[in-house]
Amino acid sequence: MYAALAGSGVAIVPFSSASVLADLEVGIVWWGAVEALTVVVVFLHGWSANAQFGLIGAYRYVAIGLPVMLISMFMLIAAALPAESLALPQIVESQRGLWNVIRQPLGLPLFLLLGLSLSFRGPFNYADSADIAGGTAAEVSGAPRLVWEFARLAMLTAVAAMAASVFLGGYLGPWLPGPAWLVLKTATLLLVLVCLTEQLARISPSRMMTLIWTTLLPLSFLHLVWAGVLAL
């Protein structure tokens, strides 16, 4: 039952240092797969307990997780345009002149939403929230719960590392060695994510779904067109 959830915390780690671990040519596609599998794993975690609160959390999470995944993929593909590659190292290299966060200003904030959604925190906590007594995690205690919470935090860190690479120029930076810059940028983004978690209230799932589809998704279309025109 819990075995699958470990995968969610795992699979993204290769990205934490873009130039070293796994130099995959289709890094962006891999990340897309990780996002999709996370939705499956969180759903299974809630479903597996045979309890109503877990089920509510699981189904609700899927409703929000799917469209947010779309947004994040649009952001990543927009970042891949100027690099002419889906490999993360090339995307980082393409930012030598100018970081993507300035070139494509909408990218980072919209991608950070994914961070909150993937690890279901704060305003995107539809899976493990207080109104359903801990949701998908309501029925676990002890070591399995430890692993689950660890996976959540690992996922948050992975998103921050990914965002640092794609939008903040990853290991690029003066004076300090590359990995130090990456760690620094990741930590900064984590701080931002944690602040967002604490500072924003959550709206009801149906309103959130409408908001994503009718506002955020068209915004990400605009973003893609903007990135495309710039890249030409």
């Binding site: 289709v26 962006i28 596609v29 593909i77 891949a80 345009l81 100027p82 002419e84 889906l86």
Partner: peptide, 8 residues
Amino acid sequence: YPWAVVYV
């Protein structure tokens, strides 16, 4: 995905 690679 392929579109992004050949875009430029």
